[in-house]
Amino acid sequence: MRWFAIKSLRAFVTLWLVVTFVFFVLRLSGDPTMILLPDDTDAATRSFYRALWGLDRPIWDQYLRYVAGLMQGDFGISFRNNMDAFQLVRDRVPKTALLGWTALSIALVLGIPLGILAALYRDSWIDRVVMGLAVFGFSMPNFFLGILLILIFSLQLRWLPSSGSDTWWHLIMPAFTLGTGFAAQIARYTRSSMIDVLAKPYMRTARSTGAGPARRVISHALPNAAVPVVTILGFQIGQLLGWAVVTETVFAWPGIGRLLTTAVATRDLAVVQCIMILLAITMIAANMFVDFLYGWLDPRVRVGAGARTA
């Protein structure tokens, strides 16, 4: 419980730092009225909008008002269409969550077994093929892979729709585009971690006790090899939104990534801030989840169970 309290406090401080940083950087990046309003807008109209959005106040005043609003669950108003920023973002969350989880599942389902296979058949042709694919998958930029898939499966074969999110068919290509890079990373980490563990004396103990290959891998090698893979998983959940921006743009997937690109381009401050906060919360939650998994996977880092040595 104490552990959880400390973690929560830290998470809260991190979140506050993110909010503050994003707030000031965005406001230093120029006057939103210059971008949002037509070029020939006269000065009086401009100052009207500045006053309306509170941009004429001192920056400290703006900041305190913003933070006070956040405390009450008010994320501000979108400059572009006068809608509640939180509402705008919330409407997009399910689509990105669907894309992200599908991509992550693909990454896990492909990456972990391939990594195990490469480790078990180390230096054989299986290992070389898997690692070759991993290098390919990791080094291929998302936008390129996305366009390549569209060329093959939409334009040539006409199997899959190239854009939109109306059916499950629409999900396939974006999810693979986003998942491939993650799968490659996971495969590499799984492989190297498995190779380490397979050389451990307890693997020999298991074999000399008569444990079959499946039992050795599933109940000894994999759980011990999982720790580094879980670390990577934590990073990936954080990266997911960043990579989703490109993927969502390529496939016209109406998620947070696309909302973010338009919001940044138009200096829609409230929306950008709201997305950044969401991103920070995702990162923090992913990290806490990873810490929790560590404890579950490795009794040596388990909290509460103090080191007893006799």
Partner: peptide, 18 residues
Amino acid sequence: RIRMQLVHQNAAGALDPR
């Protein structure tokens, strides 16, 4: 394996830490 077993030097390494 039921009939012949091994005990080796590195006892800490011979056991699964998990």
